[in-house]
Simulated scan of single mutants.
Amino acid sequence: MLSHNIQSSKDAVDKCLSISSKGHFFSDSFFEDVRKDFETAVNEVLSRHDIMGSANDELSCYRSLRERELKDETQAMKTTEDRNGFKVVLDVHDFMNEDVKVKVVDNKEVVVEGRAEKNDGTLRSSKSFCRRFTLPGAVDMNAVTSAMSSDGVLTISAPKI
């Protein structure tokens, strides 16, 4: 279970971002510029856990690991910067679209939260995660956008000023 407490001061300004829905991560051209970053993040998780898969099944090995161990260390995530801005790509496959929220907090930080609850008769379970990204002042925080692929890969883009 991934969890962190989130607290913000009374005068903090939170702006919830809408998450655009896109197609499959590996076939939708929208994600073309972050595919390599996501593949690198998946490989880093597999490497940390001494799991080696063939090039054809790295994603399935990774998703299998996530099913067994849902924690921060097994979440594929990569942050990159280029001359245009910053991008964050992370796997939120374990959560439905409506279970994931992206917020800009105090005009300097991006917070991604996921929370899901399941109620199977007498058994009730929940899972959650929280990731925070502090972006440098050269970013236009009013222009931050987020998009999620149909297979659960979230991309956040923050353009430079």
Rank of each mutant, 00 (worst) to 15 (best):
P136M: 13
S18N: 13
K160I: 06
M1R: 08
N43F: 01
K36M: 03
T80C: 10
K118L: 09
V153N: 03
I6Q: 10
S21R: 13
A147T: 05
P159A: 05
N142Y: 10
I161Y: 11
G23K: 10
M77N: 07
S64N: 14
G121F: 14
F26E: 13
I161E: 05
G137M: 08
C130G: 08
F31Y: 15
M52R: 10
R115E: 09
G23W: 09
E117V: 14
F26D: 14
R66H: 00
V42Y: 00
F25Q: 10
V88T: 07
V92N: 08
K127F: 01
E67I: 04
H4D: 11
S20Q: 15
R115M: 06
S9P: 04
D33E: 08
F31I: 08
S64P: 00
T40H: 11
G137I: 08
K160D: 02
N5R: 12
F86D: 05
R131S: 01
D99N: 15
D120M: 15
E117D: 10
S125K: 11
V92M: 04
A76D: 00
K101V: 11
P136Y: 15
F31K: 14
R48V: 00
L90Q: 06
H4K: 15
K10W: 09
H93Q: 11
S18V: 09
E44S: 03
T40K: 12
Q7H: 13
E109K: 14
A147I: 00
K22E: 14
K15F: 07
K108V: 03
E44T: 06
L65A: 02
A158C: 03
F26I: 03
E98D: 14
D37E: 06
N84H: 15
D106V: 03
G121N: 11
I19R: 09
V45H: 03
I161V: 09
A143R: 13
R124N: 07
T155N: 02
K22V: 01
I6D: 09
V111L: 04
D37V: 00
A12G: 08
A147V: 02
N56V: 09
V110L: 11
C16G: 00
S126D: 06
D91I: 01
K118F: 07
K101W: 04
S60E: 14
K108I: 03
S20C: 07
M141T: 07
R124Q: 13
P159I: 05
E67K: 14
V144Q: 06
N56W: 04
K160N: 01
A143P: 01
L65E: 02
V102F: 03
D151Y: 06
V112W: 01
E58S: 11
E67A: 08
S157M: 08
D120I: 10
